[in-house]
Amino acid sequence: MTRASVRGSGARAAAQVRPERPFARFRWTVTVVLLALLAWSTWSVDATWGRLLQAPGRAVGFVGTLVETASLEPLGVALEAMWESIAIAWIATLLGAALSFPLVFLAAANLTRSRVRQPVRQVLNVFRAIPEIVLAIALIPFLGLGPVTGAVAMGISSIGTLGKLSAEIVESIDDGPLQAVEASGGGRLERLRWAVLPQAMPEIAAFWLYRFEINIRVSAVLGVIGIGGIGGFIAQAVERNVFERIGLGLLVVILATMLVDAISSRLRRRLIEGPSPAAQARRERASTGGGPTGDDAA
């Protein structure tokens, strides 16, 4: 095919005006701002970039040492530390869920007037902003340096995210049932119980579980200030060059986190999507005793 093959009718082409390529202002602004930030940070940050070149070599040596010193001997201690992290994360999630739950409905636009809602939202924002480590440090004089401190700090700092995102879930529910309950004379609490919760609860519970997954990672972070758990275990091992503990600790944290993620994401899917159609059908047959009403479902 020759180039001319696209140009079929010269006359038609001549009658049309090709537009000018417009100036992509948004794209250029973003590009310039990003490049400026990148350049400023790269030149002024106190980083010895040259060390990046040694890193691969050192990494090979480091991994080599990990493999050489591999040992299952500290497995018990590592598993105990991992379990502690999971326990901290779980208590923190429960605490966060319990503390945020009442605030959710005060922060949702479809349930609460803006005069009440805005302050509640601001409070949630503040909780969101505080890094867990700051809260944990602030709590040490009261609760000591241990897993409970970590759980309370993470629980309090979960309030913000849990409250805000759960409120967004509540805001996204179907308005119809709300009006229906109101029309049949239901008050505020009835609306909550019969219109809001049935619609929003599965997703909110799924989000709690998701927060649990995040909290496991956070509890490892808090480990470095000494609240216990697998984070402190690994950080101390790195600091003291105890290689068999580093390697095993990493292995445990990776496998355990992936395992919890896998279980939790299955539970979340089940919560949101409900039982599988097959399981549902089986239950319906069971509850109606296999009667002739079965074909109503179709």
């Binding site: 180039r3 696209v6 140009r7 009718s9 038609r12 082409a13 049309q16 537009p19």
Partner: peptide, 21 residues
Amino acid sequence: AQDRELAMEALELVEIVEKAY
């Protein structure tokens, strides 16, 4: 440029080149 030219010509053929951008 030649690919852009071909694309423009194709748009002219179906008379919608004014919407190119």
